[in-house]
Every structure is written in C-alpha cells, then in structure tokens.
Amino acid sequence: MRTIAEINKKINQKRAVVWTVEELKTRVAEIGVTKAAKEVDVITTGTFEPMESSGGILNLGHTDPPIKIRRCWIDGVPAYSGFGAVDLYLGASCAVEAMDGEELRERGGGHVIQDLIAGKPVQVRALGQVTDCYPRATFETTVTRDTINQFYLFNPRNLYQNFIIGVNGGDRPLYTYLGPLQPRLGNAVYSNPGAISPLLNDPDLQLVGIGTRIFLGGGIGYVAWEGTQHFPLQRRLANHTPIGPSATLALIGDAKQMDVRWVRGCYFKSYGPSLMLGVGVPLPVLNETVVERCAVQDKDLVAPIVDFSIPRRVRPTFGLVSYAQLKSGKITIEGKAVRVAPLASMFLSRQVALELKQWIEAGTFTLTETVSPIPMDRAFLPQDPWTDF
C-alpha cells in the first residue's frame, strides 16, 4: 500500500519509478502483477483523439468606453457572449459563419483555439447592448493569447471511457462525427485507442476524480466534474470495463500554457469542425489492484459495431468486437471482411503518455488527491416527446 503523499515525496526527490501503461503491460507479462506493483509508483496513460465537446473561455478586458458584448465573432466563428460583459465561450465545433455570400469554409472554433495557443493574432468583431454603464455599441480589434486576460479550455465532455465503431449498412455514403462511412459496410471507424486509453485502465474511477491533475493539451489541467453524457451504468465485462460509451470527464486547463502539438483544429467532411486533443492521466500505484486493472489487454476490451444508416437515437448493432481485432485493420461483419481504422492517433497517444512520464520523472509534475469521487450511479436520460398530449 502506498499513499499519494509518499509517491509525491519520491517524485520531488526524483526517485519515483514511472512506467507508461504499455511498459506496465509488458512488465506484468514478464514478472507478474505482484512484483510489478512493488516496483512501479506511477503509470501514465494517454490519448490523442477528436473531442468536439470542448471549448475556450476568453476574457477580452474592458474597452474604453466599455461594451457589453451580446454578439461576437472570432475570426468569423460565433462566440457565446451571454454572461459577463467581455467574457466569451468559443466552442470547438462551432463553424465559421458565411457572410456576404462567402461559402462556409472548413474552419471552426477548434482552429481558432489552435491559432490562439500558437500565439497567432485573431480578429474580434463584437456588437454590444447599449446601457448607461456600457455605452459602446460596436467593437473590432485583433487579439492574441497575450493581450487578453484569461484564456483557458473548459471542456464539458472529454475522455470517453469507451465508444462505438461506426459502419454504414445503407446504400449511400454517410458523413458523421466518425468521418465518412462508405455504403454497404465499405469501412468501419473507431475512436478510442483501447488498452492505452486513460479510463479503460481505471474502469471503476478509483484513481481519477474531481481535482485530479492531468496532462491537457501539453499543459497542466484538472478534472473539473463528471462529463456530459456520463453513463457509468453501462453494461460491463468481468474485468469491469464497459462494453460501450460510459464514463466521461469535464476538464479544465490554462490554454496559455498549452502547445499546438497537442491541440489541433480539424474538420470532418460534410459534418463540421472539431478539435484533436491530447490528454494524459497519471495513475498512482496505491495497491496491486491498480496494476491488475492496468494490465488489461486489447483482446479483453470490446466495443459495439453501430449502423449509422438507421437515423435513430438507438441504432441496430452488429455485435461486439475486441480492440485487438480493430487494431488488426480488419473485422468481420456478417461474414464480410471490413477494413477498419482509428480516429485516435496511436502514435501520439503513446507520446502523450511518454511526455507525462518524463514530467513526473523530472519532478515537475506531482499527483493530487481527489476532492470528490466521480459518481458511478448516473443513468442516461434521453429526450423523447411526450405521448400523452
């Protein structure tokens, strides 16, 4: 048994033994769970994948005379302005508005966030509600991350504990949040990186909670709350891992300290813009159970194959398939071999875990005690029309 305080003491003394989760899995295969648990102090996990339920909070600072912003565009992307006078929220999946007959470009909030993190200038155009204390009606300027007060990511839903595999059983191409799906089961796409993914290595969320310090976009972030659509009651295997979309986390971090290597705007054809984001979670080895859970292999993790050709909230599935099968590049659906590819970058997911490992070994990143656990009893509540009117 170890404590967070004991591990942090070793980190500060640069004596902590840190393994990436892939190194842990290899070592367990060589020496077993018990010996591995005695050797390692921290296990690092990582992912780099699309996380469209993300966005940035910006405070521009007051103008002279002051303005109470009620409509705003940052490089042509609408920013939400319905709270403080010069507070804005820029959603990663919000698209550039077509203006003056200009066609919609393949650009959105994720690209603007990337540019701000890179230190590039972006244009702000605002309309104000004129009041006695905010007499200004319009405002235009150019800002960078260094000329505004705050710029931090606040992401309502990141780090799905598991997700789905998208296919298309129909007769025309479909353009989805998983990318293009070819007709007649022409391809399959999945997004979770499987056995290296953070929350699949802590299936009961015993180590991750509100206040957990994490690697977020190349900077330091924190778990702020449960994520939207958090559904820990998803059915689970005997190893406690869910068979489909389950737990999620809301994350927060200072974007001024982030790196565009780990925060990149992207675009899905005929669907819209999004954000590729690198997130790493350190798992403290408090006991053998931590190592046992982190030893899970891709062959022991499954996800459902979902047919997007049925335009309903609950779509038919073609059963479950393991991540080992997914990573082979082909799966079999109703006797047909279907090529499959990930949205997550396996290479960059590994690099996130490795960079976080290096931070901890250098003594620049310590672990935090959780303030409160993430609830594990949340049901999923859909919106259905009332039938008794």
Rank of each mutant, 00 (worst) to 15 (best):
M1Y: 09
I7C: 08
I7V: 08
I11E: 13
N12R: 06
V18D: 12
L24A: 05
A29Q: 15
G32M: 02
V33L: 09
V42L: 10
T44G: 11
T44V: 00
T45C: 12
T47F: 05
E49G: 10
E49H: 10
P50V: 05
S54N: 10
I57G: 15
T63Y: 15
T63N: 13
I69L: 03
R70S: 10
W73A: 13
P78Y: 02
A79L: 01
G84H: 08
G84Q: 11
A85S: 14
L88S: 12
M99F: 10
G101R: 02
R105K: 15
E106G: 03
E106C: 04
I113S: 05
I113P: 09
G119M: 00
K120D: 07
R125H: 12
G128I: 01
Q129P: 09
R136D: 12
A137T: 05
F139K: 09
T144G: 06
R145W: 04
T147M: 01
I148N: 01
N155P: 01
N158A: 01
L159Y: 03
Y160L: 00
Q161H: 01
Q161C: 00
N162H: 04
G169C: 06
G170E: 08
L174T: 00
Y175H: 09
L178S: 09
Q182K: 13
Y190L: 09
A195R: 07
A195F: 09
L199G: 07
D202H: 02
L205T: 09
L207H: 06
L207N: 11
V208T: 15
G211L: 11
I214M: 08
F215C: 10
G219N: 06
I220W: 12
W225Y: 12
G227H: 06
L233S: 11
L233A: 12
Q234G: 04
R235G: 12
N239E: 07
G244D: 12
S246D: 14
L251V: 00
V260P: 14
R264V: 06
C266T: 15
Y267D: 05
F268E: 02
S270N: 15
Y271E: 10
P273L: 09
L275G: 12
L275H: 10
M276T: 07
L277H: 13
G278W: 04
V279I: 07
G280N: 04
G280R: 02
V281Q: 06
P284R: 01
V285C: 08
E288H: 11
T289Y: 10
R293F: 04
C294L: 03
V296E: 13
V296A: 13
K299M: 10
D300F: 04
I305C: 04
F308K: 02
P311N: 13
V314Q: 03
R315C: 08
P316M: 03
V321Q: 07
A324I: 00
L326Y: 01
G329Q: 03
G329W: 04
I333M: 12
I333R: 09
E334S: 13
A341S: 14
A341M: 08
A353D: 09
E355A: 11
K357W: 05
L367P: 11
T370I: 14
V371A: 10
P382I: 00
Q383P: 07
D384Q: 14
T387M: 15
